[in-house]
Amino acid sequence: MGKRVLLIEDEPNIIQAIGFILSRDGWTVDTHADGKTALAEIARRGPDLVILDVMLPNRSGFDILQDLRADPATEALPVLMLTARGQKRDRELAERYGASRFMTKPFSNAEVLDSVRELAGS
């Protein structure tokens, strides 16, 4: 395996939780907490998959997603969106902007794991 995931999330405890779950499954997990510099971080790390929170400091996850999809280098990069707001509108926006998958917090660990495996495998 040895695939790499970039987790973009600002809540320390959630970073710890996801980091723990995925690394235990054999993933290499990098984390980033700021919205503004997230794109640069993705370009620098070149992950196989991105887990992207919607509510990030300084820049919204949706904006980052749009930029990813507009860039040919990252337009096919699997992106798993996370949101704590869970409203219908957010799901629609995520679909329109091209999220590979959308999950509402709180999630079950197994669900996250399955999604990540599936997205990275496809």
Binding site: A17, A84, G86, Q87, K105, P106, S108, N109
Partner: peptide
């Protein structure tokens, strides 16, 4: 809407950690 959205966010964020770590502990 804005208020509910905020409340939802504020409630779900701690819940996420609680659920994730409980499952880890249970696992």
């Amino acid at each position: 809407d804005a208020f509910l959205s905020q409340i939802s966010h504020e409630l779900r964020t701690p819940m996420t950690s609680i659920r994730a770590f409980s499952e880890i502990l249970m696992a």
